[in-house]
């Protein structure tokens, strides 16, 4: 935003807005042109985009290795599932509730461990994610339905006026959420909060010495990331109408991790590209059946050889002023 305001060139402004605008048009037009099956694929692309955006706050913006993000996703999904099926709380009301529950969980769990460094934090988040999943399997207080999970979650609805019950409505529900999240996250990127997050990622000691409360901003990232994952869980639960622990495995956390790194750390367009890869690839290559995951794994490796900084890394500074410097910077990463 700041760059847009400062640089007077109108051409630059339109160039920077062109890609997102084109993408928004594509996302809007897509469901009117394809079958329900393809709309559902678009829906899951949206869910992964939302999950990618949420992990991107923690991993991309602040550089914290969180490999247990599926835990927050699970909390959001189960809060929605349990409160809806037991107490008939409307799913839409449960969206903010799920966000808050996941955020609160993140705050409580991360407070004592936030000082851990790098891989130690990584294993603790893995452990946290596994504890959530195992707890769901073990059906504490008879709430979570054990390995089978919870069935019969309602559609998101406002009375009987607006009922989200078709593929296309779910599709728009998730993509509107993605759009709103992107707007908020872009704002944060260009504020002192986003800057503080990036400083911590670049050099936590220097960030402290520059006056940034490292602990507080790390926690904020976890809380916010968890809230967004909670929202994704809410939408996911009502779309599938049931939730079970096997949707929230360590593997799911790894996929989110890959979305961020394949796209480019801290890059919002990157997250979209990464989510597209993770969600669309297995669908597109479905005809290859058994071999597709083999190819999937190989492509991840090749991608990191070709573009180690991610497919669409975040551009900083005024690209137009010194384009050559920028290019060499990218190449040197």
């Amino acid at each position: 935003m700041r760059d847009l305001q400062n640089l007077s060139g109108g051409g630059l402004r339109s160039a920077r807005l062109l890609a997102p605008l084109a993408f928004a048009c594509l996302v809007t037009a897509y469901p009117f042109a394809v079958s329900d099956y393809l709309i559902d694929i678009g829906f899951f692309f949206g869910i992964y985009a939302l999950l990618g955006l949420s992990l991107n706050i923690v991993l991309g913006e602040v550089g914290l290795f969180d490999l247990g993000h599926a835990g927050f996703y699970a909390i959001g999904a189960y809060v929605t599932a349990v409160l809806n099926t037991r107490y008939q709380v409307p799913v839409l009301v449960l969206m903010p509730v799920s966000c808050l529950a996941a955020a609160l969980f993140a705050y409580l769990v991360c407070s004592p461990i936030i000082h851990l460094k790098g891989d130690y934090l990584c294993i603790v988040t893995i452990g946290m994610g596994e504890i959530v999943r195992l707890a769901l399997i073990n059906n504490p207080f008879d709430l979570t339905g054990g390995p089978n999970g919870v069935f019969g979650i309602d559609f998101p609805r406002v009375g009987n006026l607006l009922v989200v019950d078709s593929s296309i409505e779910y599709y728009f529900l998730v993509w509107i959420t993605v759009g709103v999240s992107i707007a908020g996250l872009v704002s944060l990127q260009h504020s002192r909060i986003g800057r503080a997050w990036n400083c911590i990622r670049e050099d936590a000691v220097a960030a402290q010495a520059t006056g940034i409360n490292v602990r507080a901003y790390k926690l904020l990232a976890f809380v916010l990331g968890a809230a967004l994952a909670g929202a994704a869980g809410n939408i996911y639960a009502s779309k599938l109408m049931c939730v079970s622990p096997e949707s929230f495995t360590f593997w799911e956390s790894c996929l989110m991790f890959c979305i961020v790194l394949i796209g480019g750390m801290g890059s919002i367009p990157g997250v979209i590209v990464g989510a597209a890869f993770i969600s669309l690839f297995p669908e597109i290559f479905r005809p290859f059946a058994m071999y597709r995951m083999l190819v999937f794994g190989s492509i991840m490796i090749v991608m990191m050889m070709v573009r180690p900084g991610g497919f669409w890394p975040r551009k900083r500074g005024a690209v137009t002023l010194r384009p050559l410097m920028e290019d060499t910077a990218d190449g040197a990463v």
Binding site: L261, M265, M293, G297, M304, P308
Partner: peptide, 28 residues
């Protein structure tokens, strides 16, 4: 080997890719 120089995080993705690959080799 091809990604050591690129830093730690690309290597993590590469390792996950290798894991998926090997798992599917076993399955096949």
């Amino acid at each position: 080997r091809p990604v050591y120089r690129a830093g730690r995080l690309p290597a993590v993705v590469s390792a996950l890719g290798a894991s998926i690959f090997l798992q599917n080799v076993i399955m096949l």
